[in-house]
Design a protein around this nucleic acid. Sequence first.
DNA 1: TTTTATTATTGTCTTTATGACAATAATGAT
DNA 2: ATCATTATTGTCATAAAGACAATAATAAAA
Lengths: 301, 301
Amino acid sequence: MDQLRAIKYFVKVVENGSFSKAAEFFSVPPSSLSRRVADLEKMLGATLLKRTTRAVSLTEIGKIYYQQVSEVLQLLAQCDETVKNYQARPMGVLNISSMVGFGERILLPLLDEFNRLYPEITLNVSLSDELSTLGRDEVDLAIRGGYAPDERVIAVRLMDNYFIMVAAPAYLSTFGTPVDALELKQHKGLYFKTPNGPIPWICEIQGQRQDVSAEQVLISNNGKWLLDKTIAGAGILMMPHWVLKPYIESGELQELPITPPLDITTNRTLGVFLLYQKQRYQVPKIKAAVDFLVARVKGAY
Amino acid sequence: MDQLRAIKYFVKVVENGSFSKAAEFFSVPPSSLSRRVADLEKMLGATLLKRTTRAVSLTEIGKIYYQQVSEVLQLLAQCDETVKNYQARPMGVLNISSMVGFGERILLPLLDEFNRLYPEITLNVSLSDELSTLGRDEVDLAIRGGYAPDERVIAVRLMDNYFIMVAAPAYLSTFGTPVDALELKQHKGLYFKTPNGPIPWICEIQGQRQDVSAEQVLISNNGKWLLDKTIAGAGILMMPHWVLKPYIESGELQELPITPPLDITTNRTLGVFLLYQKQRYQVPKIKAAVDFLVARVKGAY
DNA sequence: TTTTATTATTGTCTTTATGACAATAATGAT
DNA sequence: ATCATTATTGTCATAAAGACAATAATAAAA
C-alpha cells in the first residue's frame, strides 16, 4: 500500500469535505480515493472518516491523524524542495498569477525572452483580477495592484500605478473639452469593473469631497473593449497611465487635465506589485523569475 | 513512484552503508532498493548517494536529505502509532527479547495464557543473552539481568537474581562436600558462558579478595546442557537460584553453603528486569504485556 | 600484479497494487 | 415520492514493484 499517496488522498478529502471534489484535484475517479483511504484505515486499524453519500466528516481519531499527517506532508514537501532548489539550474513549473491588464500588455510579451533564457522552466500563467493570496500551493508569483501586509511575503513595487483621464479627439470636438471637475457630470463615462465595483470619480471642491462621476454609459471588466469604445468616441475613460500611454502617444486618445484633479489621479502611492514568499526566493526558478521581472519592468514604465 | 517506500529504502541503505545489508532488512533483493533509490533521485533531480560496488556514501545534499527525511519517517511512525494505540483493544505484533534462561524456564510457559487472554496480539519472542537496547525498532519489551539507566526506559524488577552453588549427591559422595571456600579449588567446576565470559568464583578471605574457582571442566552458554552434566555428577555449578530451585526441590541437586560465601552469592541487588520505553506504556499491547508479566512473575519466584 | 569474491546495476519477466469503468446503494434536495 | 448526486464495490486493464539472472566494477586476498 502506498501510504503517502493514501495520506495525500485522505488530507485532500478532509479539506474538500468530499471524495468527489478531492478526486478532481488528483484527476482520478472517486473510487480510487475511496479505496486508498479504506486501505489506510485498515492499516491503522481505525476509522478516520464518517461518510454518507452526502457528507464526509472526521472521526475523533481522524481529526488527530489529519492534523498530524498534514504536518508530515508539509515537512516532506519542504525536504523535497530543499533538495530541488539545491540545484544551480532553474527548472520545473513556475506558476504566475497576474492581473489581467498588466498580464496582457506587459507580462506576456516579456515571457518569450524569459523562456529563451530558462528553457527548463515551464510557465503556467493565469490572468485574473480576483484577489488571491500566495498561500495557495499553486501560485509562485503574483502580480497585483495592492497587497495585504504579510511578513512572509515580499512585495516588490514594479512600477507606479496612477490613473489619468482620457477621451478621443472626436468626442471632444463634439462635446467640448472638460477643464473643471464639475463639468464631468455633464459628460459620458466608461468604467472598469474592478472586484470592488466601478471606481467613482471623487475630488475635493471647496473643502468638500464630491462625486463628479459622468453618466455611466458602459461598465465592463474587459479593458480592451472599454478602450476600443473610448477611441471610438463613446466617452471619457479613467485608467492606469501605463495602459493608456501608447494611445496618447499615437494620438488616438487625449489626456484631460482636470481641475481640481480627482483624488485617485493624485494618489502616487498606488503601484503594481510583484508578490512572492520570502523564504522561497532561494528556489532557483523563483529567484530567476523575480530578478528577471524586476530588471525588465522596474523603472521601464 | 512510492516515495515513502523509496525514502525508507534510502534511509536504511545510509544506516547500513550497503544496499545488500539494507535489502536483507526488507527481505527484497538489492536490485529493488537500487531501483527505488534511483527513482527517488530522479524525482528530486539530485544524486543522494555516491556508490561504488564496494562502498556507499552520502553526497552533500544527500546528508541534508537523509537528516530531514529521517525525522519525517519518525514523525509519521508516531502519527500511525498514535492512531493504533488509540484502540482500546491490544493488537498487533509484540516483540519481546528475553535472556535465554529466563525465557525458556519462566517466560515461554507463561505466554500460552497470554495468548489466550489477548488473541489479537501476535507474539514475536527472541531469546538471546546478547546485550541489547530498546532503541531498536523491533524490540517492544526486553528482559535482562541488568540495564543501563535511561530516563526514557522503565526497568521493572521482576524478581531477585542471586546465585547459589550446587552439585549432584553422587558427585558429593565421590569427591566430598566442600564447606570452606578454599576447598573449591580442589573440585571440578562447570561455568556458564556469559557475554562477558565465565564468571570467576571470588570471595574475601582474611581481608583479601581471592579467586577460588574450581577447575574448569565445562564452559557453555547452553544452560540446560550444563545442568544435565551437573546432575550427572560432572562437578559444581553456580547459577541463578530461580534456575536451580526446581532441581533442589526434587533432590537432583544439592545446595552448597560455602564459607566465606562467594561475593556474587551475597549480592542481593542483582535482579531480572523488564525493560520498556516509558512513553510506549500507553500502547495497549505494551501495557497489557507489562501488566501481565508483572502480575505473574513479580513476587512469584 | 593477478585472481577472486562481493556488491551495485541493469535486462527481462512475473506478480502485485492501483486506476478505469460501470453498477449499485444511500441520501439529501426537490 | 422522485430525482440527482455521491461513496462504495465488482471487475478488468494498466502501471509499478519485485524476482531472478547476468553483468560490470571494485576491494580484498593470493
